[in-house]
Nucleic acid binder design. Sequence first.
DNA 1: TCATCATAGTCAAGAAACTGAGTAATCAGA
DNA 2: TCTGATTACTCAGTTTCTTGACTATGATGA
Lengths: 197, 197
Amino acid sequence: MALRHAVLAALLAGDSSDGDDSGEYSGYQLAKAFDIGVANFWHALPQQLYAELAKLEKEGLVAGRHVVQETRPNKRMFRVTRAGLAEFEAFAAAAPKASFIRDDLMVKVQAADSVDTGPVIEQLEEQAALAEAKIELFGKVLRKMRGELDEEEFLRRGDRIGPYLTCLRGLAHERENRDWGLRVAAVLRERRTDEAR
Amino acid sequence: MALRHAVLAALLAGDSSDGDDSGEYSGYQLAKAFDIGVANFWHALPQQLYAELAKLEKEGLVAGRHVVQETRPNKRMFRVTRAGLAEFEAFAAAAPKASFIRDDLMVKVQAADSVDTGPVIEQLEEQAALAEAKIELFGKVLRKMRGELDEEEFLRRGDRIGPYLTCLRGLAHERENRDWGLRVAAVLRERRTDEAR
DNA sequence: TCATCATAGTCAAGAAACTGAGTAATCAGA
DNA sequence: TCTGATTACTCAGTTTCTTGACTATGATGA
């Protein structure tokens, strides 16, 4: 029972970029949100989200309302109930579980001394390129979130700083991803050419 | 089937700090290794490791040998077989799965605008302190791994650079952890005092 | 006009991971 | 001498996650 809190957090922090009432998402929108912002600290597939929303609704932690649409399939919009907020408060006050990571590329690098590093080098460089793209994306997202304020000002007086702060972390993480990837690729490359002599 | 590769990587990169033959670990030692080095990119509990070793042995990817001890309970030492290495090579050459993260604290920060930030601030500061301790630890581990060489030299000519490189990443990650944690704690603290006025 | 993308979901099987407990011996310190 | 830590591992039950479908409709672009 941990995904539930990520879902509640996503709903609570729900953006209002569409002009909709904030804090309300359909399952589909939630899946989108998980793809961009929430992915910085939680990974989940759409099917899981739909399932989790159903569970949360049954327990009264979120409330769904049907929205009939003409040009699009109908949908259900979910918001956090008072009980849901209470549940989240309790979670926020409790000791956090240790964060955890799973990273295929690092597994490969760990064994770099025992395997052919050729493909790994390529993957590292691809990863670095992807990270670079994300860095730019995050830059834009952050600029949009803070509007015309500069970062200091925004963090002091802006509203909705939660997603901003987690996005900052995502940005830092991607920078690290890129830098480490390039560094390791360079090191492994040099050792390959040395080896070949 | 993903833990298996982390286990193989750990065995392949197995340290020889005990003077033992390298690339050989007992389940218990493996669990230790997962606690320190491997934890930088893969999280797993001892029970999972024992189970995975059993599976890997049944499939012939690792081979175990009994070691009778007098002062301690007997144990089984595992090493990667040729088939295991082939399996790992295939994994290393295949496209990596997207890395994934789960972080309770970031979930809490995401919803910072909707909940009481008091406990979260404390947790952030605790986390920063823990990160600081890990930073120092990693510093020592790295120094030990590279011996009397400096980093450049070691990465060019040292053997067993795999664990070193992943440890570098762990170090960078912990620094980021610490810096972000302190920054966010400071921001949230200031907003609380402002709010109280 | 045809294909593909985006919206908006649902379902079920199987793999993987987590929880929590238990066993048993030795050693170090109060 | 008793406690707690360390070594070494096992088992069962449950939850969670992943995989790979499948259903619809409207919009977009070639």
